[in-house]
């Protein structure tokens, strides 16, 4: 199922957080949004999982205008892993994961045997099955993140929207989660701060700067020293990964571009 943002703008109290953004995520593609802090990545994602309604423009979900779909229906197709996700209540890990079935269930309807198995499978896949009976309040940031990723899988969506999914995760779990995105075969829209991971996992990248899409294409097309300097204000060397050939960025500590202007 493909997702298409069609000329969306988001204004909040007079400021345009996203301006005229058009981006397509083809069915089964992994598309990454990159850009500096405050460039509108999260805002763009929020329009896709409907926490926000674009002021102008349309988000299309498999040919249907997202705004016309009932929330329950779009939640069966689109699952999100957001930055802000937590509660003061001490739900168990198992309970939190089971809430992923909400859009598929009526009211307080109990989970079927298949659905309980689905939950166990998702917890096992994310390596949190041993935490099933634990209170979510006692988890570390990384564990919590993986629990929420399990909840997202349990939703059985066709589209995944992830806002900085690798936050709080150690290296191994970062790679695990991103491999899972690739192997899932689902349509994935993800924001990543780590450009090297973005390059490795994404089919295409969109680069946002001050709310506008300034570049899009394959990682090789997008991740050039020039763009990194223009958008992030950082001087970087781009080298192919010795095993995969994916473009990888190398920085040195004093690589802030401002001090070194003009750059060759």
């Amino acid at each position: 199922m493909e997702v298409r943002m069609d000329g969306i703008s988001v204004s909040r109290s007079g400021r345009e957080l996203v301006r005229d953004l058009s981006l397509e995520v083809g069915s089964g593609q992994v598309v990454g949004l990159i850009g500096p802090n405050g460039s509108g990545k999260t805002t763009a994602l929020r329009c896709v999982y409907r926490a926000l309604k674009p002021t102008v423009g349309t988000v299309w979900l498999g040919g249907e205008d997202l705004a016309t779909l009932p929330l329950r229906r779009s939640a069966r197709s689109v699952a999100a892993l957001t930055q802000e996700d937590g509660t003061d209540l001490d739900f168990t890990v198992e309970e939190i994961v089971a809430l992923g079935r909400t859009p598929h269930l009526r009211g307080n309807q109990a989970l079927s045997a298949r659905e309980r198995e689905l939950c166990r499978g998702a917890m096992a896949r994310l390596g949190v099955l041993h935490l099933a009976g634990r209170s979510v309040l006692t988890l570390s940031g990384g564990e919590r993140r993986r629990v929420l990723a399990a909840r997202m899988l349990v939703q059985e969506p066709q589209v995944l929207v992830l806002d900085e999914p690798t936050n709080h995760l150690d290296m191994r779990h970062q790679l695990d989660l991103l491999s899972l995105l690739r192997e899932s075969g689902l349509t994935v829209l993800v924001t990543l701060h780590d450009l090297n991971l973005a390059s490795a996992v994404c089919d295409r990248l969109g680069v946002l700067s001050r709310g506008e899409l300034v570049a899009s294409g394959t990682p090789a097309e997008v991740l050039t020293p020039r763009l990194i300097r223009d958008v992030f204000g950082v001087t970087a060397s781009v080298v192919p990964h010795p095993l995969t050939g994916d473009p990888q960025l190398l920085y040195s500590l004093s690589s802030s571009a401002d001090e070194k202007e003009p750059c060759p």
Partner: peptide
């Protein structure tokens, strides 16, 4: 209120999450 049990579970996670789980 009891019939809204699961909805309250989801709402306790915040509006952002509620929306993504199909609960307004």
């Amino acid at each position: 209120l009891r019939r809204h049990g699961r909805a309250l579970d989801v709402m306790a996670l915040g509006d952002e999450v509620s929306t993504s789980l199909g609960v307004d």
